[in-house]
């Protein structure tokens, strides 16, 4: 894991995480406090990046939006990973009926485009993070299941797994001590990939007004509302656009870095 962060993308990611989680602890302006008199106010000492159409502090809103994007996406990816990997590993190891069933269920989930599934959930349950996180988690379960299943299938065919069975090792020991350590690479890559996808999906839904609900700040929504005021204050649109692009770029770069780190064609020792 240490190797993962010892790279330009790893350092940048750590920096973004620091801004998102330490930023809100700093004495910044309240992201929700309106000051209509000062709407579209330019940069000042109190508001380093200026104020939006309700006079709220842009910097503070950006920092909070960044945090919620990471929390929602990371949380959803985590839930999804736990469920998906468990199902995939069991399906790949036990085979038989449980394998057929779980893989079919995953096929069904994959038939629904993620964005539309989220919209259906928003229709039924109402929009907001409490709908968003479970839907994102559900949508990405199949990807984890498939990666875990495929990796288990590759690993379990290796002679060293048979050798471990002949030592008298139990199935649980084989799964946790022999198979899992050999498939963490692809799973980490998949995890970072799912975080990226979640960030994009979450921002898109918020852009449509179906994700994070106002007045809470989110990058997608900030972009959506600032479109109409671009002529008055371009920065209100460009700042969240830039933040979102940088976040996704860094996450993607980190994902690529992990992929190279765990490339099976590279001999991986430690």
């Amino acid at each position: 894991m240490k190797q993962a962060f010892q790279s330009p993308s790893g350092i940048l990611l750590a920096l973004i995480l620091a801004i998102a989680f330490i930023g809100p602890l700093l004495p910044l302006a309240d992201p929700l406090a309106m000051d209509v008199a000062a709407r579209f106010g330019g940069p000042s000492a109190a508001h380093p990046l200026g104020q939006d159409e309700y006079g709220r502090d842009l910097l503070s809103r950006l920092v909070h939006a960044l945090r919620s994007a990471i929390l929602i996406s990371g949380g959803a990816a985590m839930i999804s990973a736990v469920i998906g990997v468990s199902v995939g590993v069991v399906a790949g190891y036990v085979r038989g009926f449980s394998e057929a069933l779980s893989m079919r269920v995953m096929d069904v989930i994959l038939c629904f485009p993620p964005l539309l599934l989220a919209m259906l959930a928003a229709t039924l349950y109402g929009a907001g993070p409490s709908t968003l996180v479970p839907v994102l988690a559900l949508v990405f379960v199949p990807s984890f299941t498939r990666v875990a299943h495929a990796s288990v299938m590759t690993v379990r065919g290796q002679d060293y797994v048979d050798a471990t069975r002949l030592m008298g090792a139990s199935a649980t020991r084989i799964i946790f001590r022999t198979i899992l350590p050999n498939i963490v690479g692809p799973l980490f890559v998949q995890f970072s990939f799912v975080v990226v996808m979640s960030v994009i999906l979450e921002s898109g839904l918020s852009f449509l007004g179906l994700g994070v609900l106002p007045p809470q700040p989110s990058l997608g929504m900030m972009i959506g509302t600032a479109r109409s005021t671009f002529a008055q204050e371009p920065w209100l649109l460009l700042a969240p656009c830039l933040s979102l692009i940088v976040l996704v770029l860094v996450l993607n770069a980190f994902c690529d870095h992990l992929r190279q780190l765990f490339d099976p064609r590279r001999e991986s020792g430690a």
Partner: peptide, 9 residues
């Protein structure tokens, strides 16, 4: 296969 019969980890 001596390459497949030892756990690489």
């Amino acid at each position: 296969d001596p390459y497949a019969s030892l756990n690489p980890r």
